[in-house]
């Protein structure tokens, strides 16, 4: 049994109220600045808002936000506002986030965030687009091989640093299993790409430099065709050291 009067403690705010939207924007900004894997997310819908009084001052916005994956990797310095939402035909991924945002003296500060993400159902995707490839498991043999082959192709063609795989983020296996498409993040090492003999002896640079690649491996009789396009981002400080809206500490799960 709930304690008496507990239902009267918070006030309900319209989800599309400018105050709710302002809190949601601060929350999404915080989330994207503190991601270090996967893709940046965009706000899709404000699901629920409760505003609790906070002693001695301020209010806490308890919010549930629906988000959508964008095409920008978390390590991509592009502001999230400039990132495109991944369309449904690319097998969209949605996020469900619970935020607690403090409003004090007119300023919003994120206190905590917890997000889960999940891809759209295969059935829904196939109903809407029967020929669209669905996301493949990232540990699938073909997927792992495609990422290795694409990264190797990139390192063979570059005159700069040798890049290591950071994470495989997305993959699908196309028509008749002959074409495997992968997206992955990579990081520069202290080895030169054209001189590396043992990649296990290469170390990440102190000033981290990341890149993001899209690669395709197509099986043709007795051989394979590899194509890869990579973007190398300017050197940056690690995301966990990057400045975050004050004050810390917020909980990020």
């Amino acid at each position: 049994v709930s304690p008496p009067m507990i239902g009267l403690l918070y006030r309900e705010v319209n989800c599309d109220d400018p105050e709710s939207e302002q809190a949601a924007m601060v929350a999404m900004d915080y989330l994207n600045k503190n991601l270090f894997r996967g893709y940046k997310h965009a706000l899709n819908r404000i699901e629920k808002v409760k505003v609790w009084p906070r002693r001695p001052f301020g209010e806490v916005f308890e919010m549930e936000l629906d988000t959508l994956e964008t095409t920008c990797h978390a390590l991509d310095p592009t502001p999230a506002a400039n990132c495109s939402v991944r369309p449904l035909v690319e097998h969209a991924v949605e996020g469900d986030c619970d935020f607690r945002v403090l409003k004090q003296a007119g300023q919003f500060t994120v206190l905590s965030v917890k997000c889960d993400s999940s891809p759209d159902s295969r059935e829904d995707l196939k109903k809407m687009c029967p020929d669209c490839p669905v996301l493949a498991p990232l540990n699938h043999t073909k997927v792992v091989h495609a990422a290795d082959a694409a990264l190797k192709a990139f390192n063979t063609q570059t005159n700069g640093s040798y890049f290591q795989l950071v994470e495989l983020t997305r993959a699908n296996i196309g028509y008749l299993s002959r074409t495997t498409y992968v997206e992955f993040a990579m990081a520069a090492t202290d080895c030169a790409a054209q001189e590396v003999t043992d990649p296990t002896k290469c170390n990440l640079l102190a000033e981290k430099q990341y890149g993001f690649c899209k690669g395709t491996v197509t099986e043709i009789p007795r051989q394979e065709k590899v194509s890869v396009t990579c973007t190398v981002f300017p050197p940056q400080t690690q995301p966990d050291n990057s400045p975050v809206a004050s004050p810390p500490p917020a909980t990020l799960l």
């Binding site: 309900e12 705010v13 319209n14 989800c15 599309d16 709710s20 965009a42 706000l43 899709n44 819908r45 404000i46 699901e47 629920k48 808002v49 629906d66 959508l68 939402v85 449904l88 969209a92 949605e94 759209d120 829904d124």
Partner: peptide, 27 residues
């Protein structure tokens, strides 16, 4: 006692405070 004469009330828009609008699409 004072009784308000019956006045026809126009049906106003139904307010759905939450959830809010989709900014992109429904998944």
């Amino acid at each position: 006692s004072v009784v308000q004469p019956s006045v026809p009330v126009a049906a106003g828009p139904v307010v759905h405070p939450c959830p809010g609008r989709y900014r992109h699409f429904k998944v």
